[in-house]
């Protein structure tokens, strides 16, 4: 019995080499990792106590200003708190909100979307209805209303965002599950006797997980920006916690004369969101099975 020659070379480039070869991912991963390290080691890395007020040292400009000093590299805020230390501690809040909201909404949306796509019929009708209901609610307004009623705190913001941002997960997971479900390998694994949970975990999930990661990064960035917006409006994380959104909010009154109060946390937010999105795009490029060769 003869064997046709392989259509491609059997040598496979590993996910690792493709990961390293992808510039966007590397830049994104570097920034996210740096911010993560800052957040993790905040007590060691922050030069001052972020809550310590010094009314004699209020609104000191950053070091690059002629009036600045190395004592407070990024200056101080209107209460004399060291801005760099607040920024470093603020990274904890942003990452916590991003990951927390993405995990909660990812769980809800993935379960709903995969069920709808796999089982179809009634289940799909119910899920599609819920998605429509959710899409007809303006996120910011609902979040504002809920936080205004329940009261703002870190936990409330994570929960509210987690319970609001599952729609894109559900839509994307539903579509990709629908597509994978019609593949013959799903029918083959049914014929081989696999149980439904097993098919979902070993045949469906591995083939939709790259989409899941891409949406997760988008929603993580989305949640971080929403937290900043809520905090800016005074309905997110409560002072004196140093959230980046809250820092922008507290600096807005002095925007004209002390613009660094807004630009520094603003740039930090921008960098984090950009880096997360770069990672998401890269993961999508890298994990596509067509790229394995």
């Amino acid at each position: 019995m003869t064997i046709e020659p392989s259509s491609t070379t059997p040598k496979s480039s590993s996910v690792y080499t493709r990961f390293v070869g992808h510039q966007g991912v590397m830049v994104g991963a570097f920034i996210v990792l740096s911010i993560f390290v800052l957040a993790l080691f905040a007590p060691i890395l922050a030069p001052h106590d972020p809550y310590n007020q010094d009314l004699l040292a209020r609104l000191i400009p950053p070091v690059w200003d002629s009036r600045g000093s190395w004592e407070h590299i990024f200056g101080t805020d209107h209460l004399g708190r060291d801005y760099l230390s607040r920024l470093i501690y603020g990274a904890r809040i942003s990452l916590l909100i991003g990951f927390g909201a993405a995990i909660i909404s990812g769980l809800i949306g993935t379960i709903m979307g995969v069920m709808a796509g796999y089982f179809g019929g009634r289940v799909d009708m119910v899920v599609t209805f819920l998605i429509t209901v959710r899409l007809s609610m303006p996120v910011v307004l609902v979040a504002l209303a809920v936080v205004a009623i329940v009261g703002g705190s870190l936990q409330v913001v994570v929960m509210v965002l987690g319970l609001l941002l599952w729609d894109r997960f559900a839509v994307v997971m539903r579509t990709s599950t629908l597509q994978i479900r019609s593949m013959d390998y799903v029918a083959a694994s049914q014929a081989v006797g696999c149980s439904t949970p097993r098919i979902l975990m070993t045949e469906i999930m591995p083939n939709v997980v790259n989409n899941l990661i891409v949406i997760a990064t988008l929603e993580m960035a989305h949640a971080i920006i929403l937290e900043a917006a809520l905090s800016f409006l005074g309905l997110g994380v409560q002072p004196p916690l140093p959230s980046w959104g809250l820092m922008v909010s507290e600096g807005k009154d002095m925007m004209l004369f002390e613009p660094w109060l807004i630009t520094i946390p603003g740039v930090a937010l921008f960098l984090l969101v950009l880096a997360i999105n770069l990672m998401g795009d890269g993961v999508r490029d890298i994990t596509a099975p067509e790229n394995r060769n």
């Binding site: 593949m183 014929a191 006797g193 591995p206």
Partner: peptide, 24 residues
């Protein structure tokens, strides 16, 4: 039963590009 059936009858599908999970 599901497992008994699997030992009794098996399919071979038309399109070998869709009948094998690309991740396995």
């Amino acid at each position: 039963s599901r497992l008994e059936l699997a030992k009794l009858v098996q399919p071979i599908f038309q399109d070998p590009y869709s009948s094998l999970n690309p991740r396995k």
